[in-house]
Design a binder for these strands. Structure first.
Lengths: 308, 308
DNA sequence: ATGTGGATTTTTAGATTTAAAAAAGCAATA
DNA sequence: TATTGCTTTTTTAAATCTAAAAATCCACAT
């Protein structure tokens, strides 16, 4: 069932709306409304709804549009498994991993990458553009690309945390800082949900994503976009490191609790306290070594088929 | 005299080596050596030397290569004027300016831009890629691009300075901070040279460039690359704002002096003092309003020919 | 009046080709 | 033996074309 990338994405988002309960059984999905919400035109939305009707999540009524068909049950589970919400840029991930484990040299031509990974020119271009946006690759003068050693070591992890320990608490003390109840409530719900769920069963990406999101949403309240952008960027770098490692789930519960404490302090208007709590929270992650286990230097070369 | 972009760049760099005195009159320029230094192959270096020989800066001896021909004088001046070291991405600048002055909508298709500015597809692509790297444009889902409101106002200027006031002094207190005499000497020379020169006559871009470079080089010494990257990124954003404005040259002298003071403190090992001095230095720029004059809201619409 | 369904138009990604630019190779020379 | 000058090979940017995808439009049903 080949269908456009965008329609796929939107299908996943609609599925999320249904499973999260925002759309109840029998409810009418208005095409234009959804299109506006996702910032696209009606075409891909319609395509997505067609797909979901095919999978049995929605029901199409002649000339009246699509409606939510069933209560979340087996079908929702099945649909969810198709969704793969985080697995997007696989080629990118592969390149990043090969670079972090020294399986590719620091300087390569696009052609080399094209052959090595069996990609087309535009695919290689996408991957490199992304790597360059994320700050670990740059075009050489002349032909070829250079990969930067940023974030290649556990040391990078500490550096990122020290940076965060500086900007995140300070963000709360910015003159234009303003509480945003919506953000606080949203985050509180997420954190409570995680504590409710069996953490062992949550996928690692979900854990990392939620964790990063918490901090990024909070720093937004500083109303200084440069704090936010900077955090988003180091977090991207961090994710590159952490995807490669095992999350220490024993620390996750503690983390969620600390997140909730910070939210409480903020809500009570005790901003300075919250700022300190944030600093302690980040410092904790730093001092107890990292919350992840560094594995690669040992397992890196287990399967080296791509090496020339 | 059309010639490749890279050769142009290298010609400028070689010119700089000569004018800065690193290469003396009569000295032999070894091709491979220069190529290695610039991280390119010999081809563009040779092309650059050919150009410079044509301009009379170098002299070619049969089968022996190129040599520096004359003492810096009228010729160097002339060569320098050709160089236009900063005027690179004009299309980019134009787009940025039009966005900052609200002459283009927040959401556009590539096609629209292509028609509006008379650019080819790849040119539009380059410009957008750069804008996206620099953080103020992003691809929409589906077709089209969205420009972000970051850095559109004088307020952004203050936000950037508050961010810098946080990270730059803190960088000096990083545990891995290490003095780099080479950087210090280099920067001292630059600052002294600026004080020596008639500041009124230096082009504004040079002023801004040197100023930004000073801070970026210093923050490198923290040996935490995330501090450096973050500063580089907000500085790019800042440059976007400042290109559009008149530099207040009366403040430049004071700035250079403060830069020199910071260098002195660092060299004497008084890092904490230096950190405070840096904070004061940045705070000064912030409190005296900005070192530039905001002009656009008034002059912006003087010539609006491109508006549809 | 709002929203659907489908047709039409616009926009863009991807493949292909061409020419320019850069890198690599090699004989000749100081 | 290192370096130049020139040649050959490789790499990439740019232009063109084609098909897919998204946006827009319009008649019609609710």
């Amino acid at each position: 069932m080949r269908s456009s990338q965008l329609a796929q994405t939107i299908a996943n988002e609609i599925t999320l709306l249904v499973t999260s309960g925002e759309l109840g059984v029998g409810e009418h999905l208005k095409t234009q409304q959804l299109a506006d919400r996702f910032g696209v035109s009606r075409s891909p939305v319609r395509e997505a709804m067609d797909m979901l009707a095919g999978q049995g999540l929605l029901e199409q009524k002649e000339n009246r549009g699509f409606f939510v068909k069933e209560a979340p049950g087996a079908i929702v589970e099945r649909v969810r498994e198709d969704a793969e919400p985080f697995e997007v840029a696989n080629d990118y991930q592969r390149l990043a991993e090969d670079w972090l484990t020294d399986r590719i040299p620091a300087e390569v031509t696009e052609q080399t990458l094209r052959e090595r990974y069996g990609l087309t020119k535009s695919q290689v271009n996408d991957v490199l553009m992304r790597a360059s946006r994320e700050g670990w690759a740059e075009r050489k003068q002349g032909y070829g690309w250079r990969f930067l050693p940023v974030a290649k070591t556990p040391q990078a992890f500490e550096q990122i945390y020290r940076f965060r320990m500086l900007i995140e608490p300070a963000a709360m003390l910015e003159p234009e800082f303003a509480l945003d109840r919506k953000i606080i409530e949203e985050q509180r719900r997420t954190q409570l949900r995680m504590l409710d769920t069996d953490i062992e069963r949550l996928p690692a990406e979900r854990l990392l994503h939620n964790g990063a999101l918490f901090h990024e949403e909070l720093i937004k309240m500083s109303n200084n976009p440069f704090f936010h952008i900077s955090l988003v960027r180091v977090n991207r770098m961090r994710r590159l490191l952490e995807y490669r490692s095992r999350v220490d789930r024993s620390r996750t519960v503690r983390q969620c609790q600390e997140h909730l404490e910070i939210l409480d302090l903020l809500e009570r208007g005790e901003v300075v306290e919250a700022s300190y709590a944030m600093r302690r929270h980040l410092g904790g992650a730093l001092s107890k070594k990292s919350p992840v286990t560094w594995s690669w230097s040992h397992q890196a070369h287990e399967k080296d088929g791509l090496e020339k």
